[in-house]
């Protein structure tokens, strides 16, 4: 089914215990987002390679499975690869290879493709690491503590409790359909009929969710929920030595890389420095 299939995988990974798992949620969120922002900001492939190496080290420290993390990155790549694959042919610049039908490969295009690809790998590694070392609720609580509006974070917090349930319900429906030999991609039945079945599945899901929404509201109300209720978190952690260490190493890495890419890399004319 695709990306959503990994929900249980993510949850399992995020429940493991390691030095990274036990860090404060806000710190993890901020620092891994910082790495993503810096990766998007940087135009030098060597910087991205260094960031990726750092992230791989963190994955190693967090004891999450390399194989799982790598697989999750692979699933996410197709759309990006589609865009990246065009770059060598469409970007104007110094032609390094001439193909028939007037198609040329340019150096600039090739470098830009390599840059985009490295960025994608770094940012995806970062997000996969974040979701593997912090339970979803912890991330939402961190959002809330960092100032996300109450309504939005409460909706988010409730929603992630329900995606597991809904995912199971969808699986139940599709399993029931499969057990009756229904296959949505079976071309022997008419396309219209298949879409109709899909529409019914969606209607069923919608009604189940809507009615569940009403009953959840009532049960929340009966437990004292009101418009002024706040999100409660039992995940309060103190910021201690490991947090300071993590902040210090990450900041040091980013600052050093930026220093090198401004003052040192251009002078030694390093391969892989993409200049716009």
């Amino acid at each position: 089914m695709g990306i959503a299939d990994s929900i249980y995988l993510i949850e399992r990974e995020s429940m493991k215990e390691s030095i990274l798992h036990s860090l404060d949620g806000r710190i993890k969120l901020i620092l891994l987002t910082l790495i993503i922002v810096y990766a998007v900001f940087s135009t030098q492939i060597i910087v991205l390679v260094a960031l990726e190496a750092y992230l791989i080290l963190l994955i190693y420290l967090s004891k999450i499975s390399f194989k799982t993390a790598f697989k999750r990155i692979l699933i996410l790549l197709p759309f990006s690869i589609f865009i990246i694959a065009f770059q060598p042919f469409i970007r104007p610049g110094e032609v390094i290879y001439i193909l028939p039908f007037g198609i040329n490969i340019t150096y600039q295009g090739l470098m830009f493709a390599a840059l985009l690809f490295s960025r994608i790998i770094v940012t995806l590694t970062s997000i996969i690491l974040l979701s593997s070392i912090s339970p979803m609720q912890e991330v939402v609580h961190s959002f809330r503590k960092l100032g996300m509006p109450r309504d939005f974070s409460m909706i988010l917090s409730l929603m992630i409790r329900f995606i597991f349930l809904f995912y199971d319900e969808l699986k139940k429906i599709t399993n029931a359909q499969t057990s009756r030999n229904f296959d949505i991609f079976n071309k022997k039945t008419s396309y219209r009929w298949r879409l109709k079945q899909l529409g019914f599945t969606i209607m069923m899901m919608f009604l189940r969710s809507y009615e569940r929404g009403e009953s959840i509201y009532l049960s929340m109300l009966s437990r004292g929920y009101s418009d002024k209720s706040q999100l409660y978190s039992s995940l309060n952690k103190k910021i201690g030595k490991p947090e300071y260490l993590f902040v210090a190493t990450t900041l040091l890495l980013v600052v050093t890389l930026q220093f090198l890419s401004v003052f040192i890399f251009p002078q030694i004319g390093l391969v892989g420095a993409y200049i716009k």
Binding site: D151, M154, L158, M159, Y217, D227
Partner: peptide, 30 residues
């Protein structure tokens, strides 16, 4: 808009609907 039109119900209702959309987006359609 949610505050004005859905009252207190908005949080649970929007949350389950988001879960619903999340689930149907996970479905491959031919």
């Amino acid at each position: 808009w949610a505050k004005e039109n859905l009252d207190e119900k908005r949080v649970p209702l929007m949350a389950v609907l988001a879960a619903f959309i999340f689930a149907i987006q996970a479905m491959n359609i031919p």
